[in-house]
Protein backbone atom coordinates (compact mmCIF):
# COMPACT_ATOMS: atom_id res chain seq x y z
CA UNK A 1 0.00 0.00 0.00
CA UNK A 2 1.85 3.12 -1.14
CA UNK A 3 1.03 6.81 -1.16
CA UNK A 4 0.23 6.69 -4.88
CA UNK A 5 -3.03 4.98 -3.97
CA UNK A 6 -3.94 7.97 -1.80
CA UNK A 7 -3.53 10.34 -4.70
CA UNK A 8 -5.55 8.03 -6.94
CA UNK A 9 -8.36 8.17 -4.42
CA UNK A 10 -8.20 11.95 -4.38
CA UNK A 11 -8.41 12.16 -8.17
CA UNK A 12 -11.41 9.88 -8.09
CA UNK A 13 -13.31 11.98 -5.61
CA UNK A 14 -12.60 15.03 -7.80
CA UNK A 15 -14.14 13.44 -10.87
CA UNK A 16 -17.06 12.35 -8.72
CA UNK A 17 -17.84 15.86 -7.58
CA UNK A 18 -17.52 17.16 -11.14
CA UNK A 19 -20.09 14.64 -12.20
CA UNK A 20 -22.38 15.85 -9.46
CA UNK A 21 -22.04 19.43 -10.66
CA UNK A 22 -22.86 18.73 -14.30
CA UNK A 23 -26.15 16.87 -13.62
CA UNK A 24 -27.61 15.26 -16.72
CA UNK A 25 -30.57 17.16 -18.06
CA UNK A 26 -33.35 14.93 -19.25
CA UNK A 27 -36.18 15.99 -21.45
CA UNK A 28 -39.28 15.18 -19.44
CA UNK A 29 -41.88 16.22 -21.96
CA UNK A 30 -41.21 13.47 -24.40
CA UNK A 31 -43.50 12.97 -27.32
CA UNK A 32 -46.95 11.68 -26.46
CA UNK A 33 -48.21 11.88 -30.02
CA UNK A 34 -48.56 8.13 -30.60
CA UNK A 35 -49.42 7.34 -27.05
CA UNK A 36 -50.29 3.93 -25.67
CA UNK A 37 -51.47 3.79 -22.08
CA UNK A 38 -48.85 1.93 -20.06
CA UNK A 39 -49.54 -0.30 -17.07
CA UNK A 40 -52.53 -2.49 -16.32
CA UNK A 41 -55.70 -0.84 -17.64
CA UNK A 42 -57.80 -3.96 -17.51
CA UNK A 43 -59.10 -5.80 -14.54
CA UNK A 44 -60.69 -9.21 -14.19
CA UNK A 45 -63.15 -7.89 -11.66
CA UNK A 46 -64.31 -4.79 -13.52
CA UNK A 47 -67.41 -2.97 -12.30
CA UNK A 48 -67.24 -0.38 -15.04
CA UNK A 49 -65.42 -0.67 -18.28
CA UNK A 50 -64.26 2.28 -20.37
CA UNK A 51 -63.26 1.32 -23.90
CA UNK A 52 -61.73 3.66 -26.48
CA UNK A 53 -63.55 6.67 -25.08
CA UNK A 54 -63.06 10.09 -26.61
CA UNK A 55 -64.94 13.13 -25.30
CA UNK A 56 -65.48 16.33 -27.26
CA UNK A 57 -66.69 19.77 -26.22
CA UNK A 58 -67.86 21.12 -29.58
CA UNK A 59 -64.77 20.88 -31.79
CA UNK A 60 -62.37 20.58 -28.91
CA UNK A 61 -61.35 17.08 -27.98
CA UNK A 62 -60.93 16.67 -24.21
CA UNK A 63 -60.24 12.92 -23.98
CA UNK A 64 -58.32 10.90 -26.53
CA UNK A 65 -59.17 7.23 -26.82
CA UNK A 66 -59.02 6.27 -23.14
CA UNK A 67 -59.51 2.66 -22.04
CA UNK A 68 -59.55 1.57 -18.43
CA UNK A 69 -61.51 -0.74 -16.16
CA UNK A 70 -62.82 0.34 -12.79
CA UNK A 71 -62.43 -2.59 -10.41
CA UNK A 72 -65.31 -3.55 -8.14
CA UNK A 73 -64.98 -2.56 -4.47
CA UNK A 74 -61.78 -0.69 -5.08
CA UNK A 75 -60.78 2.94 -5.23
CA UNK A 76 -59.31 4.26 -8.45
CA UNK A 77 -57.71 7.70 -8.30
CA UNK A 78 -57.48 9.89 -11.37
CA UNK A 79 -54.68 12.40 -11.24
CA UNK A 80 -53.08 14.83 -13.64
CA UNK A 81 -52.45 18.52 -14.24
CA UNK A 82 -55.38 20.91 -14.65
CA UNK A 83 -57.20 20.49 -17.94
CA UNK A 84 -55.93 16.95 -18.46
CA UNK A 85 -59.46 15.58 -18.79
CA UNK A 86 -59.76 13.63 -15.56
CA UNK A 87 -62.97 15.34 -14.41
CA UNK A 88 -64.41 15.08 -17.91
CA UNK A 89 -63.90 11.33 -17.90
CA UNK A 90 -65.30 11.05 -14.37
CA UNK A 91 -68.44 12.94 -15.35
CA UNK A 92 -69.01 10.75 -18.39
CA UNK A 93 -69.32 7.76 -16.04
CA UNK A 94 -72.80 8.80 -14.90
CA UNK A 95 -73.61 10.90 -17.94
CA UNK A 96 -73.30 14.20 -16.12
CA UNK A 97 -71.78 15.42 -19.38
CA UNK A 98 -75.26 15.14 -20.97
CA UNK A 99 -76.11 18.41 -19.26
CA UNK A 100 -73.25 20.26 -20.98
CA UNK A 101 -74.17 21.59 -24.37
CA UNK A 102 -72.00 20.42 -27.26
CA UNK A 103 -70.48 17.60 -25.28
CA UNK A 104 -70.17 14.31 -27.17
CA UNK A 105 -68.88 10.97 -25.94
CA UNK A 106 -67.47 8.45 -28.40
CA UNK A 107 -66.57 4.87 -27.50
CA UNK A 108 -68.05 2.48 -24.96
CA UNK A 109 -68.69 2.87 -21.26
CA UNK A 110 -70.43 -0.01 -19.58
CA UNK A 111 -71.35 -1.07 -16.08
CA UNK A 112 -71.78 -4.79 -15.39
CA UNK A 113 -71.77 -5.23 -19.17
CA UNK A 114 -74.62 -2.77 -19.71
CA UNK A 115 -73.95 0.07 -22.17
CA UNK A 116 -74.38 3.37 -20.29
CA UNK A 117 -74.92 5.35 -23.48
CA UNK A 118 -77.65 3.08 -24.87
CA UNK A 119 -80.78 5.08 -25.82
CA UNK A 120 -82.86 2.64 -23.77
CA UNK A 121 -81.03 3.45 -20.56
CA UNK A 122 -82.87 5.43 -17.89
CA UNK A 123 -80.45 8.21 -16.92
CA UNK A 124 -82.21 8.94 -13.63
CA UNK A 125 -81.88 5.34 -12.59
CA UNK A 126 -78.24 5.36 -13.73
CA UNK A 127 -77.47 8.31 -11.47
CA UNK A 128 -79.00 6.44 -8.55
CA UNK A 129 -76.66 3.54 -9.28
CA UNK A 130 -73.69 5.83 -9.86
CA UNK A 131 -73.69 8.53 -7.19
CA UNK A 132 -71.56 11.61 -7.17
CA UNK A 133 -69.86 13.86 -4.61
CA UNK A 134 -68.57 17.24 -5.72
CA UNK A 135 -65.71 19.52 -4.83
CA UNK A 136 -67.84 21.99 -2.90
CA UNK A 137 -70.27 20.51 -0.40
CA UNK A 138 -73.72 21.20 -1.83
CA UNK A 139 -76.39 20.13 0.66
CA UNK A 140 -80.00 20.97 -0.23
CA UNK A 141 -81.43 23.92 1.70
CA UNK A 142 -83.40 21.45 3.78
CA UNK A 143 -83.00 19.72 7.10
CA UNK A 144 -80.21 17.21 7.66
CA UNK A 145 -82.83 14.44 7.72
CA UNK A 146 -84.44 15.52 4.45
CA UNK A 147 -81.10 15.85 2.70
CA UNK A 148 -80.50 12.15 3.25
CA UNK A 149 -84.15 11.05 2.89
CA UNK A 150 -84.64 12.89 -0.41
CA UNK A 151 -83.02 10.29 -2.68
CA UNK A 152 -84.71 7.21 -1.21
CA UNK A 153 -88.07 9.04 -1.38
CA UNK A 154 -87.90 10.15 -5.02
CA UNK A 155 -86.49 6.82 -6.15
CA UNK A 156 -89.33 5.13 -4.28
CA UNK A 157 -86.98 2.92 -2.30
CA UNK A 158 -89.39 2.89 0.63
CA UNK A 159 -92.79 4.22 1.62
CA UNK A 160 -92.60 3.47 5.31
CA UNK A 161 -91.53 6.23 7.66
CA UNK A 162 -89.85 3.67 9.90
CA UNK A 163 -87.74 2.27 7.06
CA UNK A 164 -86.83 5.77 5.94
CA UNK A 165 -85.64 6.60 9.46
CA UNK A 166 -83.49 3.50 9.32
CA UNK A 167 -82.00 4.40 5.94
CA UNK A 168 -81.22 7.94 7.17
CA UNK A 169 -79.54 6.67 10.32
CA UNK A 170 -77.62 3.96 8.50
CA UNK A 171 -76.38 6.38 5.81
CA UNK A 172 -75.34 8.99 8.36
CA UNK A 173 -73.56 6.31 10.37
CA UNK A 174 -71.69 5.05 7.35
CA UNK A 175 -70.69 8.61 6.51
CA UNK A 176 -69.36 8.97 10.05
CA UNK A 177 -71.73 11.82 10.82
CA UNK A 178 -74.46 10.21 12.94
CA UNK A 179 -72.99 10.90 16.36
CA UNK A 180 -72.48 14.56 15.50
CA UNK A 181 -75.99 15.21 14.15
CA UNK A 182 -78.31 12.67 15.85
CA UNK A 183 -79.75 15.36 18.13
CA UNK A 184 -80.35 17.94 15.43
CA UNK A 185 -81.68 16.06 12.43
CA UNK A 186 -84.31 18.70 11.80
CA UNK A 187 -81.82 21.58 11.60
CA UNK A 188 -80.74 22.81 8.15
CA UNK A 189 -77.91 20.90 6.49
CA UNK A 190 -76.33 24.16 5.44
CA UNK A 191 -75.73 24.99 9.11
CA UNK A 192 -73.07 22.27 9.42
CA UNK A 193 -69.33 22.87 9.08
CA UNK A 194 -67.70 22.33 5.67
CA UNK A 195 -66.38 18.88 6.53
CA UNK A 196 -69.71 17.84 8.04
CA UNK A 197 -71.55 19.14 4.97
CA UNK A 198 -69.30 17.05 2.74
CA UNK A 199 -69.99 13.97 4.85
CA UNK A 200 -73.69 14.83 4.64
CA UNK A 201 -73.36 14.86 0.85
CA UNK A 202 -71.66 11.47 1.02
CA UNK A 203 -74.50 10.20 3.27
CA UNK A 204 -76.97 11.53 0.74
CA UNK A 205 -75.10 9.76 -2.08
CA UNK A 206 -75.02 6.41 -0.28
CA UNK A 207 -78.64 6.61 0.94
CA UNK A 208 -79.89 5.38 -2.43
CA UNK A 209 -77.51 2.36 -2.25
CA UNK A 210 -75.46 3.21 -5.31
CA UNK A 211 -73.01 0.69 -6.73
CA UNK A 212 -70.41 3.25 -7.73
CA UNK A 213 -69.53 6.59 -6.12
CA UNK A 214 -67.75 9.25 -8.17
CA UNK A 215 -65.89 11.90 -6.21
CA UNK A 216 -64.63 15.04 -7.89
CA UNK A 217 -62.02 16.55 -5.57
CA UNK A 218 -64.13 15.84 -2.49
CA UNK A 219 -61.62 17.34 -0.03
CA UNK A 220 -60.24 20.38 -1.78
CA UNK A 221 -62.49 22.75 0.17
CA UNK A 222 -61.84 21.08 3.52
CA UNK A 223 -59.31 21.51 6.32
CA UNK A 224 -56.80 18.72 7.08
CA UNK A 225 -58.86 17.14 9.88
CA UNK A 226 -62.04 17.04 7.81
CA UNK A 227 -59.97 15.72 4.91
CA UNK A 228 -58.59 12.93 7.08
CA UNK A 229 -62.15 11.99 8.12
CA UNK A 230 -63.30 11.81 4.50
CA UNK A 231 -60.25 9.77 3.55
CA UNK A 232 -60.94 7.32 6.34
CA UNK A 233 -64.52 7.15 5.13
CA UNK A 234 -63.41 6.43 1.55
CA UNK A 235 -61.35 3.54 2.87
CA UNK A 236 -64.38 2.14 4.72
CA UNK A 237 -66.80 2.71 1.86
CA UNK A 238 -64.53 0.90 -0.58
CA UNK A 239 -65.44 -2.37 1.13
CA UNK A 240 -68.97 -2.08 -0.21
CA UNK A 241 -68.78 0.44 -3.02
CA UNK A 242 -66.72 0.99 -6.11
CA UNK A 243 -65.16 4.45 -5.96
CA UNK A 244 -63.55 6.68 -8.57
CA UNK A 245 -61.94 9.81 -7.19
CA UNK A 246 -60.43 12.78 -9.00
CA UNK A 247 -57.92 14.64 -6.90
CA UNK A 248 -55.26 17.32 -7.24
CA UNK A 249 -53.68 16.17 -4.04
CA UNK A 250 -51.21 13.46 -5.00
CA UNK A 251 -50.60 12.39 -1.44
CA UNK A 252 -54.33 11.86 -1.14
CA UNK A 253 -54.34 9.63 -4.21
CA UNK A 254 -51.41 7.73 -2.69
CA UNK A 255 -53.26 7.34 0.60
CA UNK A 256 -56.76 6.34 -0.47
CA UNK A 257 -56.59 4.53 -3.78
CA UNK A 258 -55.79 1.01 -4.90
CA UNK A 259 -55.09 1.99 -8.47
CA UNK A 260 -54.01 5.30 -9.94
CA UNK A 261 -54.64 6.60 -13.44
CA UNK A 262 -52.49 9.45 -14.71
CA UNK A 263 -53.87 11.78 -17.41
CA UNK A 264 -51.93 14.28 -19.45
CA UNK A 265 -53.42 16.63 -22.07
CA UNK A 266 -56.49 14.43 -22.53
CA UNK A 267 -54.50 11.23 -22.81
CA UNK A 268 -54.54 8.42 -20.32
CA UNK A 269 -50.82 7.89 -19.82
CA UNK A 270 -50.55 5.23 -17.15
CA UNK A 271 -52.72 3.02 -14.96
CA UNK A 272 -51.01 0.99 -12.28
CA UNK A 273 -51.37 -0.13 -8.67
CA UNK A 274 -51.00 2.98 -6.51
CA UNK A 275 -47.94 1.77 -4.62
CA UNK A 276 -46.17 1.27 -7.92
CA UNK A 277 -47.18 4.64 -9.33
CA UNK A 278 -45.76 6.49 -6.35
CA UNK A 279 -42.57 4.49 -5.95
CA UNK A 280 -41.76 3.30 -9.44
CA UNK A 281 -43.97 4.81 -12.14
CA UNK A 282 -43.64 3.28 -15.57
CA UNK A 283 -43.99 6.42 -17.66
CA UNK A 284 -41.66 9.43 -17.59
CA UNK A 285 -44.60 11.84 -17.61
CA UNK A 286 -46.12 10.21 -14.54
CA UNK A 287 -42.76 10.39 -12.81
CA UNK A 288 -42.34 14.06 -13.67
CA UNK A 289 -45.81 14.93 -12.46
CA UNK A 290 -45.80 13.07 -9.16
CA UNK A 291 -42.31 14.28 -8.29
CA UNK A 292 -43.39 17.87 -8.87
CA UNK A 293 -41.47 18.66 -12.03
CA UNK A 294 -44.44 20.12 -13.88
CA UNK A 295 -48.15 20.38 -13.38
Amino acid sequence: MSTTVVSAAETDSNTRSQHLMSGDQTNFLNDIQDHVTVGTCFSENAKMSIKNVSVFYGNKQAIFDASVDITENQVIAMIGPSGCGKSTLLRSLNRMNDTIEGCRVKGHISMDGQDLYSPKLDVVELRARVGMVFQKPNPFPKSIYDNVAYGPKIHGLTDSRYELDEIVEESLRRAGLWDEVRDRLQQPGTGLSGGQQQRLCIARAIAVSPEVILMDEPCSALDPIATARIEELIEELSQNFTIAIVTHNMQQAARVSHRTAYFHLGKLIEVNPTEQVFTMPEHNLTESYITGRFG
Binding site: Q25, F28, G295
Partner: peptide, 13 residues
Protein backbone atom coordinates in the same frame (compact mmCIF):
# COMPACT_ATOMS: atom_id res chain seq x y z
CA UNK B 1 -29.83 4.43 -17.42
CA UNK B 2 -30.91 8.02 -17.17
CA UNK B 3 -31.78 9.40 -13.81
CA UNK B 4 -32.83 12.99 -13.40
CA UNK B 5 -32.94 14.68 -10.08
CA UNK B 6 -33.26 18.27 -11.27
CA UNK B 7 -36.08 20.35 -12.73
CA UNK B 8 -38.52 20.40 -9.84
CA UNK B 9 -40.96 23.27 -9.93
CA UNK B 10 -39.70 24.07 -6.46
CA UNK B 11 -36.02 24.79 -7.13
CA UNK B 12 -35.22 24.50 -3.45
CA UNK B 13 -36.15 20.81 -3.67
Amino acid sequence: EDIALENHIVKQF
